[in-house]
């Protein structure tokens, strides 16, 4: 079975990319395929709590983070020292990797898809 990494790097509010990347992760998980997530760049803003987007601004993808456990998606990686990491207003379920671990991570998967 292929282990998949979904890499989100786009802002959740500037396009549908994050939403559609997460949809793919949920479907993979629904089909019992092992899938992990990693976040970088503008996608890190998903982690910020107390988001309340209006319907014009888009869906609140932050809310989905707490639901990932029901899909058996357990690993959400970020790179340590990312500006959103480890702040009090940030979602706590992430695993921070140092630079070397972060770079090595991409080789741990049979397939990586970027959104």
């Amino acid at each position: 079975m292929k282990h998949t990494l979904i890499h989100l790097n786009s802002s959740p509010y500037s396009s549908l990319a994050c939403k559609e990347g997460l949809d793919l992760a949920l479907v993979l998980a629904t089909f019992e395929q092992p899938v992990d997530l990693c976040l970088s760049g503008a996608a890190l803003s998903i982690l910020t709590s107390e988001q309340s987007p209006t319907i014009e601004q888009g869906k609140n993808l932050h809310k989905l983070l707490d639901g990932l456990e029901f899909y058996d998606i357990e690993n959400i990686f970020i790179e340590k020292d990312s500006s959103w990491a480890n702040t009090e207003t940030s979602w706590q379920g992430v695993t921070s990797l140092d630079k070397i671990q972060w770079q090595a991570m991409f080789s741990d998967y049979q397939q990586v898809f970027r959104f």
Binding site: L26, A29, T30, E32, K59, N60, L61, K63, L64, D66, G67, F70, Y71, D72
Partner: peptide, 10 residues
């Protein structure tokens, strides 16, 4: 809570 309709497994 999560803004998504769950499939069977979740």
């Amino acid at each position: 809570e999560f803004e998504v309709s769950p499939a069977m497994r979740p």
